[in-house]
Amino acid sequence: MKSNRTSVITIVVALLIGAGFALAGSQGGATIGGFPLFALAVIAAFAIQVIAFVPAAALRTERFFDLTGSLTFIVISIALVLLVPQIDARGLILAAMVVLWAVRLGSFLFAARVRRAGSDSRFEQIKGSPVRFLQVWVLQGLWVSITAGAAWIAMAVAPAQQRPLEWLGVVGIVVWVVGLTIEIVADAQKSAFRADPSNAGEFISTGLWARSRHPNYFGEIVLWIGVALVAVPVLQGWQWVALLSPVFVALLIGRVSGVPMLEAKADATWGGRDDYAAYKKRTPVLVPRLGASPARGANG
């Protein structure tokens, strides 16, 4: 079947990209038993997804897909703290940033996509095919590895590379806090909007959603930029591949699976309405508009 061949190719490409990322990010980094810690983290990220895929495929369920991704961020970040020969303040801060974000997002997505909805519509067409279903789990391993890459590479640098937390690190922490706050507030506003029966079938255009059609995604991008800023001072050589992390997050959200999919869904739902057209005209897609703003309307 052509779709299965495509999935196999995608899986192989994802594994090769992951291997290259692990190799580059590991150069000059700390090791355990002679094996680079960052490479071990990437291997573990993929392995956890494949292990979780086995019962998920047997039961034909995606119920714990998002939860598995979040737990991978958490487990590996904590493992690195325990395995790095001499973890420093920067490493502990980076681990905390990743873990706190993963706990918040994982619980939110599990509640929003599965517990309330009962299933995740993204998987309806693929969970009956083991190869296609495996593909999304492997891609999640790649997503975890590259997204957390800046934090994990900086955590796993050799002790000689470690430096005191200076002004750029403080700026990074502030940027991360701002991004996480925007994401949390935007998600809370949308959840409250949807919980109100009078808003059934409507789009949200109040609060942060009056300033951006996807403020939660904007917050997500900002917080990973903050993580990268904290990591930057200790990077050297091929470890600079860590900066792929915020770029990858921005491209994934802005061009692939985030904004484009939701914009298409919203257009299909409300595209013929004048109020939605007005909302789109006055509200930026991603980067929030500053200053006074009108009210009520969208994003599904």
Rank of each mutant, 00 (worst) to 15 (best):
P55V: 05
V8H: 15
L180A: 11
A298N: 09
R90V: 08
G141F: 02
M155S: 15
W238T: 10
R194C: 02
V230P: 06
A41F: 05
A22T: 07
L252M: 08
R5F: 13
A242P: 06
F53W: 12
F110M: 05
Y276H: 15
N216K: 02
W101A: 00
F108K: 00
T31F: 13
L208G: 09
L94R: 05
Q135M: 04
V99F: 07
V171D: 14
G91P: 01
G69Q: 09
I173Y: 01
A151V: 03
G291A: 02
S3C: 08
V42R: 08
L235C: 15
R132Y: 10
D274C: 07
V13Q: 10
V178L: 07
A47P: 12
G128A: 15
A154H: 03
S129W: 07
D66G: 06
I173P: 09
A52V: 08
V81L: 10
D88C: 14
L180E: 11
R113P: 04
D267H: 14
T72R: 13
G29D: 09
L100I: 05
Q135R: 11
W209F: 04
A96M: 05
Y279L: 13
L251A: 09
P164T: 15
A242I: 05
L208R: 06
R90E: 08
V144N: 01
A242E: 03
L37T: 04
E202S: 02
F46Y: 14
A111T: 08
R163E: 14
R132D: 10
G226T: 00
S245F: 03
R63A: 12
A112S: 04
G207Q: 08
G128N: 11
V54G: 00
V232R: 04
F123V: 10
L82A: 02
A158I: 12
T206E: 08
W143V: 03
G291W: 07
L67I: 03
V247M: 00
L165F: 12
L290P: 06
A192I: 01
G226P: 03
A186R: 09
I9N: 14
R115V: 09
T147A: 01
P159V: 05
Y279P: 13
T31W: 15
A102G: 01
A264F: 04
P215W: 07
K265N: 11
A268H: 14
F21G: 07
Q239S: 03
P159L: 14
A266C: 15
S3M: 15
G201I: 06
V99H: 05
L71I: 12
I17C: 14
K281I: 15
Y276L: 04
L37D: 05
D88L: 13
L71M: 07
P159I: 09
V170L: 11
L100K: 06
L105K: 00
V287K: 09
S77V: 05
A24C: 12
